[in-house]
């Protein structure tokens, strides 16, 4: 579904992505972990070209991601994205947030967009928040609304860029539950996260990044129980001791 070859990205002198190759199969859940500044968020943002790579290629469903314009917009419509800071449209209600893109991008009628939006909000457990402005919701509710908004486009793949990092600890679970449900339903997912429990439970494959490179990749149980590289062992020792 996603194929990344030889991806390189610099921010000024800083080489954030170093010859990154990655394949994500249809229905696969790939969790990307690694220390801060390892390039995992940048990799995620390169997949729908919110960040443009300096070299290398990204293919989604066999098609190279277009550089710009309407072709790029069409591709992005099929790739859902969930951000660390939710990024719900502040001037619209939760329901309108979910309805906007299907109406403007897919040309769905208002009535149908509204029906789908209500269904999706119910699916993520916030049906009763539909009429509120985003700022009136808790962080966990906002993130679930953002997931519903992405799902409304019926994406082929969902990207999650640290979806729980801005949440109070008590709200992390409700968002991860929704994501686990999506994974169980067969959604293709790329998840950048620090939630090791989620990685172990929901991932088909864990990708460990450090210093802009993919250092190690493997099945979650094998990776967490017996990492092959020193760098991964080191990282896991730090994050799993608490």
């Amino acid at each position: 579904m996603i194929r990344v070859r030889g991806l390189n990205k610099w921010f000024g002198d800083h080489h954030v992505l170093h010859d990154v190759d990655l394949d994500v199969a249809r229905g696969e859940v790939v969790v990307v972990i690694g220390p801060s500044g390892s390039g995992k968020s940048t990799l995620c943002r390169c997949l729908n070209r919110l960040e443009a790579a300096d070299s290398g290629e990204v293919l989604v469903d066999g098609v190279p991601v277009p550089a710009e314009g309407r072709a790029l917009a069409r591709l992005r419509a099929d790739v859902g994205m969930v951000f660390q800071n939710f990024n719900l449209f502040q001037h619209k209600t939760v329901l309108e947030n979910v309805m906007l893109a299907p109406m403007k991008v897919r040309g769905v009628s208002r009535a149908e967009a509204e029906r789908t939006a209500h269904e999706l909000l119910a699916r993520v457990g916030i049906a009763e928040q539909a009429g509120k402005q985003p700022a009136r919701l808790s962080g966990g509710q906002q993130q679930r609304a953002a997931i519903a908004r992405a799902l409304a486009m019926r994406p082929k793949v969902m990207l999650f860029d640290e979806p729980t990092s801005a949440l109070d600890p008590e709200m992390v679970g409700e968002v991860l539950d929704v994501m686990t449900g999506l994974a169980a339903d067969g959604m293709t997912m790329v998840v950048v996260t620090h939630e090791m429990g989620f990685a172990r439970r929901a991932a088909d494959r864990v990708v460990f990044m450090d210093g802009g490179r993919i250092v190690e990749t493997g099945e979650p149980n094998a990776f967490f129980d017996s990492p092959r590289t020193d760098r991964a062992r080191d990282f896991l020792a730090k994050v799993l001791t608490h």
Binding site: N48, L50, G69, R70, A73, R74, L75, R76, A77, D78, V79, G80, M81, F83, N85, N87, L88, F89, Q90, L100, A101, K104, V105, A146, R149, A150, M153
Partner: peptide, 22 residues
């Protein structure tokens, strides 16, 4: 915030649409 425009474009809105609606 830049995230508003990013979220709009990530949903498949064109630049003009994200400017106009978001």
């Amino acid at each position: 915030s830049a995230g508003q425009g990013e979220a709009a474009r990530a949903l498949g809105l064109t630049f003009g649409q994200s400017l106009r609606h978001v």
